[in-house]
């Protein structure tokens, strides 16, 4: 993996991603999460389960995937859209290295912009470094990795990455993953919950997967999507003349 990481690609990606205006909205979902947490804490919510609902359900099926979607499609999709990727690809750099590096940057940014705020929200909500707060933090770290692998692949496969990714988040993660128990095995939100619950041991998280299933499935999804992405990038084609 370390041989696949290219520092130059990483630094260009980081600067190009954070330099876009879109970068401003990266932090928006997490800001909302923290504000909601603060508001509920101040209001003294009636339900004792609210930290699990807000951070687990809202956090893992809305905040985390949405942020990962924006970041994961920015690191590669935006460059494919505007054509600047050509300057990267017209060099002997390995295509798998481009993919892995962009994925690492995206996962790192998502950890910083979601997992860390989620830890802060968890500390606020549960009143300290509780098992739930730590569990949610670790789950969010894992989710940052798996979601971004998927979104980097979607960016390499389609030019409508944001639309496809949004449909996936809304329908697959948001609806099916929560309503149909069989879809849990194919839901990144549930991998994250499963990992979070292995630390938190909290029934209110409604985690449906064991730690082993979550880790194994998450690893398979990550490796498989990145492999597909690298393969697609190796066959990257420019459109020719307008016909």
């Amino acid at each position: 993996m370390s041989g696949l990481f290219n520092g130059t690609v990483a630094s260009i990606t980081l600067r190009a991603t954070m330099g876009r205006r879109r970068a401003l909205i990266f932090a928006l979902p997490s800001v909302i999460l923290i504000l909601v947490t603060l508001a509920l804490k101040a209001a003294g919510s009636a339900s004792p389960n609210w930290p699990s609902v807000i951070l687990g359900t809202f956090g893992f099926t809305v905040v985390l995937p949405l942020t990962a979607l924006i970041i994961g499609t920015s690191v590669l999709g935006a460059e494919i859209d505007d054509g600047s990727i050509i300057h990267l690809l017209a060099t002997p750099v390995r295509r798998s290295s481009v993919i892995v590096t962009k994925f690492v940057v995206a996962a790192g940014l998502t950890m910083l912009l979601v997992a860390v705020p989620m830890l802060v929200a968890g500390l606020i909500a549960t009143g300290g470094a509780t098992k739930l707060a730590i569990g949610l933090f670790v789950g969010a770290l894992a989710g940052s990795v798996i979601y971004n692998a998927l979104f980097v692949m979607i960016s390499a496969v389609t030019t409508r990455a944001i639309a496809v990714g949004l449909l996936y988040v809304l329908f697959w993660e948001g609806l099916l993953g929560n309503l149909v128990s069989g879809a849990r095995e194919l839901s990144i939100g549930h991998y994250s919950l499963g990992i979070a619950n292995s630390i938190a041991h909290d029934a209110t998280l409604h985690a449906g997967l064991s730690l082993t299933t979550a880790v194994v499935m998450g690893a398979i999804v990550t490796v498989a999507t990145l492999t597909v992405a690298a393969r697609r990038l190796a066959h990257f084609s420019l459109r020719g003349d307008a016909l």
Partner: peptide
């Protein structure tokens, strides 16, 4: 081989 693509998209922040 060196390529100068037609599209004017470079990493403008650099």
């Amino acid at each position: 081989l060196g390529l100068v693509p037609e599209r004017d998209s470079v990493y403008a922040v650099l």
